[in-house]
C-alpha cells in the first residue's frame, strides 16, 4: 500500500484511525451550537484547498481500505448493489461524471483517455487498468454503476425523475446509516423518507422535492447529515443489525472516547445529462470522540448539540441510550467559552 493510503480495517480488529491531517479536514457538520432539520442545501462548488470540498469527489487516506471493505460487503450480500433495467443509462452518466472528475482532480492517481467511445481508465491506487467501450456494458466486468462505485468512496443512489417525483431505482449501498437499498428500491421521494420524524410537519420534504425536481445539470448541490456509530463500522445496515446493534449496550465511561464515533455524511446531488436522472452520492466520514475533541471548538460545540437535542431525534438517530454517557464525556471538553460561527476549526 502506498504512503498516501492507510492500511486499516472497518470490522473485526477495527484498526481505522484518522491522521492529524484527516482530523483537521474532517467535515464537522454543525455550524452553530444547536441542531434541527432544515433543507440545508448549498451549491456544491469547490471549497478551500485541502478541505473535503476541494474536489467534486473527495479521495482521502481511507480510500483503498474503504474499497476493500465494500468488496467484502458485496461478497457477503450481492443485493447491496442493484439497478433496475431502465437505470443503466444513468449508470453510464455516473461512470462518466466520476471518471472525468477524478482524472481531472487527481491526475497522480487516475487517468482517463478517450478515443470516441473507446475509453481507457487507469486507477493506480487500486491497480486497475481497463479498456472498454462507453455505453457497451459487455466490455466491463459488471454494470457501469457497479463498476465505478466499486472504485469510489461513499454510497450512491440513482433517482429516476418522472410524474413529478423522484424514484430510487439503482444504488450501491454498503456504508449506510441503518437503511436498506434492497428494502427501499422502487420507492418515491416521500416513501423512502417516511421514517424521518418531525420533518414532515415542517414541510421539509415537499420543499426539498420541489427544489430537486428543478436541479440543473452543471449546478450540483450538497448538504450534511450525521448520526452516531459505535466502533468504526462503515456497514451499519439493517441487514446486519444483529452484528452491530448490541455494541451500543457495551459502552462504558472508559471506552466512550475511543469507541464512540461521530458519523457525518456529505451528501451531494447531481443532475445527470443523458438520463435526466439524479445521482445522490452519500459519503461517510467517521471520527472517534477522542480525535474530535483535539479540536477545542468542536469538543465544546458537540457537547452542546448532543446535550440539547430532542429525545425524538436522538431516538431516530439511534443513540438515545448512550446520550447521557456522551454528554458526560464531552462535558469535560466544554469550558463554556463562546464558539465562533461556522463549522471550520479555529
Amino acid at each position: 500500500m502506498s504512503l498516501d493510503f492507510n492500511d486499516e480495517t472497518f470490522r473485526n480488529d477495527f484498526t481505522f484511525k484518522n491522521s492529524p491531517k484527516a482530523i483537521k479536514r474532517f467535515p464537522f457538520p454543525f455550524p452553530e451550537d444547536s441542531y434541527m432539520y432544515s433543507v440545508n442545501m448549498e451549491p456544491h462548488v469547490p471549497g478551500p484547498k485541502g478541505s473535503v470540498f476541494e474536489h467534486m469527489f473527495d479521495v482521502d487516506e481511507h480510500y483503498v481500505a474503504e474499497m476493500r471493505d465494500r468488496a467484502q460487503v458485496l461478497a457477503d450480500d450481492p443485493l447491496r448493489c442493484q439497478s433496475l433495467p431502465h437505470m443503466e443509462l444513468a449508470g453510464w452518466d455516473l461512470l462518466e461524471l466520476i471518471m472525468e472528475s477524478k482524472a481531472r482532480d487527481y491526475p497522480q492517481w487516475f487517468e482517463l483517455h478517450k478515443n470516441g467511445n473507446h475509453w481507457h481508465w487507469i486507477n493506480r491506487p487500486l491497480q486497475i487498468e481497463q479498456k472498454f467501450t462507453f455505453m457497451d456494458p459487455t466490455t466491463l466486468p459488471c454494470g457501469p454503476m457497479e463498476y465505478i462505485t466499486r472504485q469510489t468512496q461513499g454510497d450512491f443512489t440513482l433517482q429516476d425523475q418522472r410524474d413529478e417525483n423522484l424514484w430510487v431505482e439503482a444504488g450501491m449501498v454498503t456504508t449506510q446509516a441503518d437503511w436498506s437499498l434492497d428494502f427501499d428500491i422502487g420507492m418515491n421521494f416521500h416513501q423512502w423518507h417516511a421514517p424521518v420524524p418531525k420533518a414532515h410537519e415542517m414541510g421539509v420534504f415537499d420543499r426539498a422535492l420541489k427544489f430537486l425536481l428543478k436541479l440543473q445539470h452543471g449546478a450540483p448541490v450538497r448538504r450534511f447529515n450525521w448520526t452516531m456509530t459505535v466502533d468504526p463500522l462503515l456497514d451499519t445496515s439493517p441487514e446486519n443489525y444483529p452484528k452491530w446493534g448490541p455494541g451500543k449496550t457495551t459502552m462504558t465511561p472508559e471506552t466512550i472516547g475511543s469507541r464512540q464515533h461521530l458519523r457525518v455524511e456529505l451528501q451531494t446531488l447531481h443532475r445527470l445529462p443523458r438520463s435526466n436522472a439524479i445521482a445522490f452520492p452519500i459519503r461517510c466520514y467517521l471520527i472517534r470522540f477522542e480525535e474530535l475533541v483535539t479540536v477545542p471548538k468542536w469538543g465544546r460545540r458537540l457537547h452542546r448539540v448532543i446535550r440539547d437535542i430532542p429525545d425524538e431525534l436522538a431516538t431516530y438517530k439511534g443513540f438515545l441510550r448512550n446520550k447521557p454517557l456522551m454528554v458526560d464525556y464531552l462535558a469535560q471538553f466544554d469550558d463554556g467559552a463562546p464558539t465562533s460561527p461556522g463549522f471550520w476549526a479555529d
Partner: peptide, 12 residues
C-alpha cells in the same frame, strides 16, 4: 443556459 429537460422520455 445549460440544457433542462421538461419533456423527458420515460425510459421504462
Amino acid at each position: 443556459s445549460h440544457p433542462v429537460n421538461l419533456f423527458p422520455l420515460d425510459n421504462r
